[in-house]
Simulated scan of single mutants.
Amino acid sequence: MTTSELGGRVALVTGASRNIGRAIAVALGTDGASVLVHAHRDAVGAAETARLVEAAGGRAAVALGDLADPEVPAKIVEAALAAFGRLDILVANAAIRPEATIEDLSYADWRAVMALCLDSVFLLTKAALPSLKASDQAAIISIGGLTGHSGAAGRVHVITAKAALAGLTKALAHDLGPAAITVNCVAPGLIETKRDGEEPRHHATRTNVLGRRGTPQEVAAAVRLLAGPSMRYVTGQTLHVNGGALMV
């Protein structure tokens, strides 16, 4: 059932063609938001997410592009404005999580992860700022990760980027607080998602106090909360959604 708490609001969700990104887009649409669904190249998946947003009662549009290209983030923000005329909620979810030891990790591989997982969030924020400042309920939410706080083997580039998102969240909260823009990070861990490759090796040793994996919808619920009017006094925080695998 569609509610109106986010009615009239516009959200941009990156990496939304499946899994957590799709769940976030649908959750925001269910609550009345219009959603710009971004994907790198998966037009079919992005279109399905848009269909699900509309079936839930929201409006949706799709934009494709490689956010690791520094010219693309501004174009994706422009696509949201062209489709809906405003932007209130920026959800930076797009990421890659390859595994490699420090011995095998090339600088090019390091930079590829940083470009998508960290640099794109900076560039999206810069591009979105004029629109967010015009909103009376603006929110920036990045999707971090459990290993950015706990560490893990064979993922030095991914862990560094995810840890940096927590720092970027705090820095932006200070800078954008005077404009009443909230900035938060949601850090999922042990979430049941569909993967292209093998399960990350560190998952074999991870446990949590609930004894199960979470769902993309449970991560989306946290994002939805931070995007809504009831959380306007929460900023600069990292909200962990991991079943108690890490307690801070």
Rank of each mutant, 00 (worst) to 15 (best):
G148D: 08
V234M: 08
L81P: 03
M247S: 07
I89N: 02
E198Q: 07
V234S: 02
T238P: 11
A11M: 11
R9C: 09
P178D: 01
A221G: 07
A134S: 15
R155P: 01
R51Q: 13
A179E: 15
G32E: 12
G236Q: 08
G57K: 10
S230A: 15
G45L: 12
I181T: 10
T3E: 10
V186W: 06
A39V: 11
R212G: 10
L246E: 14
L28P: 02
A79E: 06
L81R: 07
T215M: 07
V13M: 05
R213M: 09
L81Y: 02
I141S: 01
E54K: 11
H203T: 09
L190A: 15
S34P: 03
L67Q: 05
A115G: 15
K126H: 04
A33W: 00
A139G: 04
E78N: 10
I159H: 11
E218T: 06
L118S: 07
I89C: 07
A94L: 02
P200Y: 11
G15T: 00
R86I: 12
A180W: 07
H157K: 00
N93L: 03
A221E: 14
T193Y: 05
A139K: 00
A50K: 02
G167W: 03
S230T: 13
I191K: 09
V241L: 04
A108C: 00
A128F: 06
D196F: 13
T160P: 01
C117I: 04
V62W: 03
A152Q: 12
N184D: 14
M114A: 14
G189N: 13
G58M: 00
V219H: 03
I76D: 13
A92N: 15
V113L: 08
H203E: 14
G21Q: 00
T49R: 08
H203N: 12
A79S: 15
I102R: 01
G189Y: 12
A134I: 05
A179V: 08
G58K: 01
K162Y: 11
I143N: 00
V113N: 06
T30H: 04
A166C: 10
H202K: 05
A108L: 01
T30P: 00
L124V: 05
S4F: 05
A173H: 08
A115R: 13
A180P: 04
K162E: 04
I102G: 03
L132E: 07
I89W: 08
A164I: 10
G57F: 12
W110Q: 04
S106N: 02
G177V: 02
I143A: 00
A23Q: 02
V44F: 11
A163R: 08
G197M: 10
S150L: 10
A222P: 14
A94W: 01
A92S: 15
R195S: 12
A204S: 15
G151W: 06
R224L: 15
M1W: 03
S17D: 03
T205R: 14
E99K: 03
A187G: 02
A80I: 03
G15S: 03
D175N: 06
V209R: 15
L123Y: 04
G211M: 01
T193K: 03
P98D: 08
